[in-house]
């Protein structure tokens, strides 16, 4: 017991196994957000190489023309698509759209906010991200 507060901490927050697909989406949203932030920083560094002129720019760009570079960009595509599609779902939910209407609950109390619309949104985000990644792989490795 490390803390008086007995908080679950990041390990508990990042555990997707107990609360269904919504918690998986929550974790993927965090991971893809952090990944895109890291990519954004790297992208600024990458494009700043233009200051080294045409040769410097071409040299740095060659890094992405390797197998590892292609896989990295594929992961970025997946993160970008998932974060966008799931982000739209979450933003709509945050505005109260598609979360159901208050009513007298009946046992076994299935929560209306965890309804099929949001589940479809989550699965759509995952499927679209996977499809975009496959397309990206086909373009980058299909040369």
């Amino acid at each position: 017991m490390t803390s008086d507060e007995h908080k679950e901490g990041i390990r508990g927050m990042a555990n997707p196994s107990r609360y269904g697909i919504e918690r998986v989406a929550y974790l993927l949203m965090r991971l893809s957000g952090l990944g895109l932030l890291a990519y954004f920083v790297a992208h600024i560094y990458e494009t700043s190489n233009i200051l080294r002129g045409q040769v410097g720019w071409d040299e740095f760009l060659e890094l992405t023309q390797t197998t590892e570079g292609h896989i990295f960009l594929t992961v970025v595509i997946g993160m970008c698509v998932f974060h966008t599609v799931n982000g739209v779902r979450v933003m709509l939910g945050h505005g109260g759209v598609g979360v159901g209407k208050p009513t007298r609950p009946d046992y076994p109390y299935d929560p209306a906010s965890q309804n099929y619309r949001h589940k479809i949104g989550i699965y759509s985000a995952i499927v679209l991200a996977a499809a975009a990644m496959m397309y990206g792989l086909a373009v980058m490795f299909g040369e």
């Binding site: 609360y19 949203m29 945050h94 159901g100 208050p102 209306a112 906010s113 949001h118």
Partner: peptide, 26 residues
């Protein structure tokens, strides 16, 4: 609140806090 919905899944009385929070944010 990031709408993970875990609160609603464990509520033993069917309160659905996630719905209430999103409606409140509305």
């Amino acid at each position: 609140c990031h709408f993970a919905g875990s609160c609603s899944q464990v509520c033993p009385k069917g309160v659905d806090p996630a719905m209430g929070i999103q409606l409140l944010r509305g």
